[in-house]
Design a protein around this nucleic acid. Structure first.
Length: 288
DNA sequence: ACTACGTCCTGCTTGC
DNA sequence: TGCAAGCAGGACGTAG
């Protein structure tokens, strides 16, 4: 599942291979990935044809191809999306959704099995598409204001894991890196932000940044064959995880079996000894 | 205004 | 054997 490091790997690949290229044609093979596009498949194709990519940018898990520094092609990989550069003679991928013919002679292909991802045309969005104006800066952004984010976290009566996953607060952190950052910070995900110290919040944010930077260094994380970077090469990083997906395995710090609990229609993994649950798990007014 | 939960998707895995 | 349910999960719409 692509999270921030994987998307950054894709961004870099696109930056290297498509900046300067002109879109000669667009073929939409499935309407679903364009569900957030205002123009519809035909309008989408028309709006992009003839445009030249001037830059490739990213915020959190979103990336966009700036078109002559005015409009943009905005994308999100969802759970299983890929941006592949392929020679025209390469066979269509089973889940090929959108094909771009480029002036470089290669094809840019959006492939997405589960179709949680998508593309859309962003008028005037070269610097920052309006569709993602509500997305917060990510911890790898030079302008990420950690003190301000920390303050917001400590003002909310919301569990720390929910806040880490709140893309409007801090973007780029998904379920995997949230669990990893919490394990490193020895914090249970149900601990409420307003019950944490400034140092604890600083620490978990620092760990979130550190684990994503480490993943980026080795080319992104991959847990199955669905994620493939822009060149078709799988990323890898799963060996460095200490909590996510390790139910029943001993915690590397204390040896206690890692536990898995249901959380927001997904799972949370944590060490029950190193990351003790808060005494009050139910939400509500603070006892006074 | 803010928070929380259900829904969207497909394919692999698990269980009866 | 075959089918159904479970699971993965980011973002958004809507309900509270």
């Amino acid at each position: 599942m692509p999270e921030l490091p994987e998307v950054e790997v894709v961004r870099r690949g696109l930056e290297r291979h498509v900046v300067g290229a002109t879109v000669l044609g667009v073929q939409v093979l499935h309407p679903r990935p364009l569900r957030r596009d205002a123009l519809g498949p035909a309008g989408f194709a028309e709006a992009l044809t003839g445009r030249t990519v001037s830059a490739v940018r990213r915020r959190g898990k979103y990336f966009w191809l700036a078109l002559e520094e005015t409009d943009a092609l905005l994308g999100h990989l969802g759970m299983s999306g890929q941006m592949l550069l392929q020679p025209p003679e390469a066979a269509d991928e089973r889940h090929l959704r959108v094909r771009f013919h480029l002036s470089t002679g290669t094809e840019l292909r959006f492939v997405d099995q589960r179709m949680f991802g998508g593309l859309c045309f962003a008028p005037g969005g070269a610097q920052l598409p309006s569709q993602i104006a509500h997305i917060g800066r990510d911890p790898l952004d030079p302008e990420f204001d950690q003190a301000a984010v920390g303050l917001r976290i400590r003002r909310r009566h919301v569990a720390i894991k929910r806040q880490l996953l709140d893309q409007g607060l801090v973007s780029g952190v998904g379920n995997i890196y949230a669990d990893e950052a919490l394990w490193r910070a020895r914090l249970h995900g149900e601990r409420r932000g307003d019950r944490l110290t400034r140092a604890q919040v600083e620490e978990v944010l620092n760990h979130a940044r550190a684990v994503m930077e480490a993943a980026l260094e080795v080319g992104g994380t991959s847990f199955d064959s669905l994620y493939v970077n822009v060149n078709g090469e799988s990323g890898y990083f799963d060996r460095s995880l200490h909590a996510y997906g390790l139910e029943g395995q001993p915690c590397l710090r204390c040896g206690t079996a890692i536990r898995r609990v249901a959380f927001m229609n997904r799972s949370s993994y944590f060490c029950p000894l190193c990351q003790p649950a808060p005494r009050v798990t139910r939400r509500g007014p603070s006892p006074s």
